[in-house]
Computed example of a mutant assay.
Amino acid sequence: MVKILLVEDDKMIQELITFNLEREGYIVETVDEGKSALEFLKKEKPDLILLDVMLPELDGFEVCKAIRGNIETANLPIIMLSARDEITDKVVGLELGADDYVTKPFSTQELLARIKARIREGKRNLYPEPISLAWGDLEIWPESYLATIRGEYVTLTGKEFELLYLFIKRPNQVFNREYLLQKVWGYTISGDTRTVDVHISNLRSKLKGVAPIIESVRGVGYRLEGSPSKTKNG
Rank of each mutant, 00 (worst) to 15 (best):
L138W: 02
I27V: 15
A98C: 10
M54I: 10
R150H: 13
D197W: 07
K206D: 02
N20M: 08
K35E: 14
D100L: 10
K169W: 08
S190F: 09
V7N: 05
Y153N: 04
L163A: 00
E110W: 10
G34R: 11
E39G: 12
V217A: 06
K159Y: 07
R177I: 01
L5M: 14
E33F: 07
L5T: 10
K3P: 08
V217G: 05
L156D: 06
L126G: 07
A37L: 00
E15F: 05
G25S: 00
Y153E: 10
R114P: 09
L16A: 13
T231V: 15
L224T: 04
L166K: 14
L112R: 03
R170L: 12
E29T: 13
R23G: 01
R114G: 01
S201T: 07
V92A: 11
T157G: 06
P142L: 07
Y153A: 06
E24P: 01
P77E: 12
L6R: 02
G122L: 11
E33G: 11
V2C: 01
G122S: 14
P142V: 07
N20E: 14
L164Q: 04
K43E: 15
I79P: 10
L41M: 08
L16I: 10
L207Y: 02
V91T: 06
M54H: 04
T18V: 11
Y101L: 05
N176D: 15
K43A: 10
F40H: 15
A147M: 07
